Simulated scan of single mutants.
Amino acid sequence: MLAADLFSFVTRVRERAPLVHCLTNLVVTNFTANVLLAIGAAPAMVVAREEVGEFAAVANALSVNLGTLDVPQSRAIRAAVEAANSAGTPWVLDPVAVGPLAFCTEFAFDLLDAKPAVIRGNASEIISLSGGASSGRGVDSTAATDAALDAAQVLALKTQAVVAVTGETDYVTDGRRVIAMSNGSPLMTRVTGVGCALSATVAAFVGVAPDRDALWSATVAAIAYSTIAGELAARDAALPGSFAVAYLDRLASLDEAAFGKTLVQRDIVAG
């Protein structure tokens, strides 16, 4: 894909400030909100079961993260997803820790029937969701992203969702098309919330997609934008604390010229 086409989604987010409703884990709420603000989106962290349905219906997108799932949150997520689907609001599933944890895994499989627009996870999570053997260690993947590519394509075809596997190399597929991207920095794994915030960023981008056919491009753009910002932030800061600040700054300031110069991608023929 052309860098200019991808960056057009960045421009849309900055111009339209999509309202992103986040039902995320309690560890990353603040950082996720700051990332959304940095990219130009409007975050909302409404969590009450009594209110999530109303809010999901008026948001531009919904981001669901299972990182600290409990029974009350699972009920709130079900209500939010149902309302989002009724309103035609796209939603993103981040299946954190799916595979090793039984409650979370069962709930994630149930959510697949509710038709997420995008599923974004690490290799172990995507392999587990596609029906493969669990290989994760808590929230961390023990598999390389290329090992999950076939699983991602199977999952995309089964659910009709765009599936993104993120790691050292990022893959995005709708079951027919596959693109690989190799931007980013190891420091992105040293700051809590970068991956979870990426799913919220994907939600912001799909929230400004003109139609369902554009969801794949929007997901590619969101991941490219986030990883390029991380790569450039690592040039500004060598340690995790300063990197977190530099990452937010790069998200807010990244322009089309730097984006196009830094982007590393390749198309893959889907098998």
Rank of each mutant, 00 (worst) to 15 (best):
T169S: 14
N85L: 01
D146P: 12
A180V: 01
F7M: 08
A180P: 09
R120A: 06
N34Y: 08
A87S: 08
P100Y: 03
A224C: 07
G131D: 07
R212C: 05
P116Y: 01
N65K: 01
R190F: 01
A84Q: 05
M188P: 05
G67S: 06
I228A: 13
K158C: 10
A224H: 03
T201Y: 04
A237R: 01
P186W: 04
A42M: 13
A180M: 11
A108M: 00
V13E: 06
D249P: 02
G175T: 02
A56W: 06
P95H: 04
L26N: 14
D110T: 09
W216A: 13
A224T: 05
S135V: 07
A233E: 03
E82G: 08
I179C: 06
A218D: 10
A180K: 08
V245A: 14
I228T: 11
V194G: 05
I228V: 14
L19P: 02
W91R: 06
W216I: 07
P100M: 01
A197M: 05
V191T: 08
A114H: 13
A222C: 10
T24N: 12
G132H: 02
D113S: 15
V98M: 00
V96Q: 01
V139S: 11
G121V: 02
L251I: 03
G271N: 13
K115H: 15
G184N: 03
V10A: 14
E106L: 12
